[in-house]
Amino acid sequence: MNQNEWAVETHNLTRRFGKFVAVDKISLQVAKGEIFGFLGANGAGKTTVIRMLSGILAPSSGDAQVAGLDIYSQSEKIKTRIGYMSQKFSLYEDLTIEENINFYGGIYGLPPDLLAERKTSLLERVGLAEAARRMTRDLPLGFKQRLALGCSLLHDPMIIFLDEPTSGVDPRARRNFWDLIYETCDLGKTVFVTTHFMDESEYCHRVSIMNDGRIIALDEPFKLKKKYNKTSMQDVFITIVKNEIGRKQGEQ
C-alpha cells in the first residue's frame, strides 16, 4: 500500500518523562476509514500516544505521520485535520447547546455561514434541533455524548481520536456510543479509539494491545482469538500480558 494511504503511521515513536519511558518505540499503521482500537490497561501509555499524535505533546524520538503530515514540522496543519474527544466529553455544562457548538466551531476558525450550516445539520442529526437553547447540563448522558462527538467533528476532520470515550459510562450507554462510532466511520472518517474494556475491542476492525509503553500485539480481533485459541478478547488479553510478563522475567 502507498504510504499516503495511511491515516496514521508511526515509526519507533518514543516519549520519555525524565527516566520513565512512557511510550517505547511503537510502530503502527492505521488505514483510512478504519476503526482502530488502542487497547491497554490504565497507565500503559495510550493517552501519551494520542497526545503526541494530536500535536499537544512533543515526542522524544521516532517519526510519525498523521493525515499524511509530519508531526514535528506540520503539527499546526494536523490540528485542522483531526478531531479529538476525551473521556470527559469536554462540553461546557453551564453553556447552552448552541453556545457549545458555536464555541467549538469558532476555535477551528469556521466562517460564520459554514458554521451555521453545520450547526443545523448537527442539531438535526443528534435530534436536538428543538432544544438548541437548552442548558447542556440538563441533557441526558446519551445526548451529551452525541453532542460532544458532533462538536469534535464540526470542522470535518479526516481522523477522530477518541480517548477512553466510554470510561465511567454504564454498559447501555457504552453500547450506544459504539453505534455512534460506526455512524462516524460510515461518514468516511478514520476512528482511533482507546479503551480498557476488552469486550469493546470486538467492535474494532483492528486492535493493538499496549503494555508498559510497548505494543505487544496488533491484528484483527478474530485473528488474535484464533492465534491464541480463545473465545473472547478478554482471554486473549490476559494470555498475551501473562506471556509478556513471563518473557520479561526470563530476560532478567
Partner: peptide, 13 residues
C-alpha cells in the same frame, strides 16, 4: 480542572 483545556489545545488556536 474540567478537562476542556485539552479540547481547546487540540484545535488550531
Amino acid at each position: 480542572e474540567m478537562g476542556t483545556m485539552e479540547q481547546i489545545l487540540v484545535s488550531p488556536i
